[in-house]
């Protein structure tokens, strides 16, 4: 997994609440495979119904081309568990999403894909969006700080373990495999406490 230490660049303001993962990666595009996932990411926002690029969508605007930060609305990426939504956002070149809140499943999936989700209060988001057109931001995971074009810094919190894993570029499977003895021990004890969980009737 790609590690994340810091990013610097433009931040795209997309203050729409409740953008769901069906909007981020419509199921039809998921099944098309290849680059359809990224090309049609946020399809109903980025394209008009006749298939043309919607110039009003900030994701399409020249000033935000290749911007690595997304300033999103509340409950960003709610809905389906599809991790394709994370891959599509990454595919657009985004490394950090700042939003008032996230869909829980999406939030966790970000950490497995080198994408940093940052939760900040709505009022902070509004202030960040106000500066979006002004220049570049930076997000520093070592210091847990966002710096705005005007030089303001805003601290954010990340779980220490998730932060470490992102900084080191490690996914959680590696970390958990190292705990195999604990898992075996748990199951050994648990089998005695709750045998019915392990000894299933059924196909016998």
């Amino acid at each position: 997994m790609e590690r994340f230490t810091s990013v610097q660049g433009r931040a795209i303001p997309l203050p729409v609440p409740d953008i769901d993962t069906d909007v981020i990666t419509p199921i039809k595009r998921v099944m098309q495979g290849g680059d359809a996932l990224t090309r049609y990411a946020f399809e109903s926002l980025r394209y008009t119904p006749d298939g043309a690029l919607n110039p009003d969508c900030p994701l399409n605007q020249e000033v935000y081309r290749d911007a690595p930060i997304l300033l999103a609305g509340a409950n960003f990426a709610c809905g389906s568990s599809r991790e394709t939504a994370v891959w599509a956002v990454r595919g657009l070149g985004i490394r950090c999403i700042i939003a008032p809140s996230f869909g829980d499943i999406f939030f966790d999936s970000c950490f497995e894909n080198g994408l940093l989700p940052v939760a900040l209060p709505q009022i902070e988001l509004d202030a960040l969006a106000d500066e979006a057109a002004a220049g570049e931001f930076s997000v520093d995971l070592e210091r847990c700080e966002v710096t705005t074009p005007s030089g303001r810094t805003i601290a954010f919190a990340v779980h220490p373990l998730q932060r470490e894993a992102l900084l080191a570029g490690r996914d959680s499977i590696e970390l958990t495999l190292a705990r195999e003895p604990e898992i075996s021990e748990f199951q050994r004890r648990d089998r005695e406490l709750r045998p019915w969980v392990y000894e299933l009737a059924g196909d016998t």
């Binding site: 499943i105 999936s109 495999l177 705990r179 195999e180 898992i183």
Partner: peptide, 15 residues
Amino acid sequence: GIGSSDLTHVLATQT
């Protein structure tokens, strides 16, 4: 519910 990375994690570790 979980995404595909976590799904792989559950398959590999049952946790």
